[in-house]
Write a protein that binds this DNA or RNA. Structure first.
Lengths: 198, 198
DNA sequence: ATTATTTTTGAATGATCACTCAAATGTGAG
DNA sequence: CTCACATTTGAGTGATCATTCAAAAATAAT
């Protein structure tokens, strides 16, 4: 009854995500997107409405990926704190990964777009808050399970963990030894594990 | 013998720094600069050669400001660790400041420009490394003065402190309670103070 | 085949991009 | 006053920006 899409939406969205993640919003042109998605401008506008629309979809796609990544770590460990520590420790190979950027896309967006694209910045900000809430939720779960000290503050720990990860990923963006980054990530993982009530 | 500059270089450079710090490199146009500096394009090109040239000068100007800021904190305290802790703690009012951005300009540049402007990214990266080296140097001084444990690693502590500050400043870029940011900064200051050998 | 519907194509739009340069303007020495 | 020279002015450059839209192509039901 109708013409098929040239590429399925997942593939298209992943390509757009990679490009925006790597280059940021302002440095990525519609021409860049057209070649990366192998689609004419008309097709892109038909699907997403605008460049900002593509970016918003890409950002949400990125955030969803991060969420499932965390869930994978949590599912692989019996104790919540071990899962969170493993997640934190996973950033020790950050420099060896072949991702579009070592820095988090939400983080890059929230800093790049603050003054110039308030609408998109808010989207990024809310996605980051959702991630922080997820951390906090897990710390709460750990507390309920008796893994944490009774005076631990899960909401604060969620904020703390997010800030720590932001620090490591931004630091890694410098031309710097991969070992130093690994050292920082390992130390963070240790700190998370050390939250355990003995 | 020659016509005077319309504004002295310091003022011009500070205005350019504010603009680039706030908006980033790609989102700032030459038109933006012309109106902010109240200069025609010809004057700007005569002074800095290119948009990238203005940015590089602005970035170095920003870094110099940060350096003197740290030196002020160090000069105000007898013990090195107290100076560093005070500097770290100064970020607790980050959200109340009326700076062009809560995030550090070097940090923003290093993430924004990685894929698109390698030359400028390298400049930002080197300025960040210089800042880290300054931290490390101070930790070394603290160690020599017997403030630190004998097995402390000043170079690592320098990297750690920079990553922690990056984390807090990026976290603060979210729409988030100022108190939480203050809490994170206070905790960092405490951690620095706790490095003291008792 | 014909038709209805969806998607793609790609030329064209006006705005804005970084940048150039010849002419005008100001300034102090002689 | 005149001249040498640093600096500013601002119109103009071609390239690229995000976006639009009419026409072509592909699909599936009739």
């Amino acid at each position: 009854m109708a013409r098929k899409e040239k590429y399925d939406s997942d593939q298209t969205l992943n390509r757009a995500t990679s490009l925006f993640w790597m280059q940021g919003y302002h440095a990525t042109s519609m021409k860049d997107l057209e070649t990366a998605l192998d689609l004419g401008p008309g097709s892109i506008y038909a699907r997403y409405g605008s460049k900002a629309g593509v970016f918003e979809a890409a950002l949400k796609n990125y955030a969803a990926g991060r969420r499932t990544e965390l869930e994978r770590y949590l599912a692989a460990h019996d104790m919540v704190l071990d899962g969170l520590a493993a997640y934190a420790g996973s950033f020790s190979n950050l420099c060896e990964r072949d991702a579009p950027s070592v820095a988090c896309m939400m983080m890059k967006s929230v800093t790049e777009l603050h003054a110039t694209e308030p609408t998109l910045q808010t989207v990024a900000s809310e996605l980051l808050d959702a991630t922080e809430a997820m951390f906090a939720e897990q710390f709460q779960r750990a507390k309920s399970a008796g893994e944490l000290a009774h005076d631990a503050d899960p909401a604060f720990l969620g904020a703390w963990l997010q800030a720590e990860i932001m620090g490591i990923r931004t630091y890694a963006q410098k031309a710097v030894s991969a070992e130093r980054v690994a050292q920082l990530a390992d130390m963070l993982a240790m700190r998370v594990r050390d939250l355990k009530k003995t």
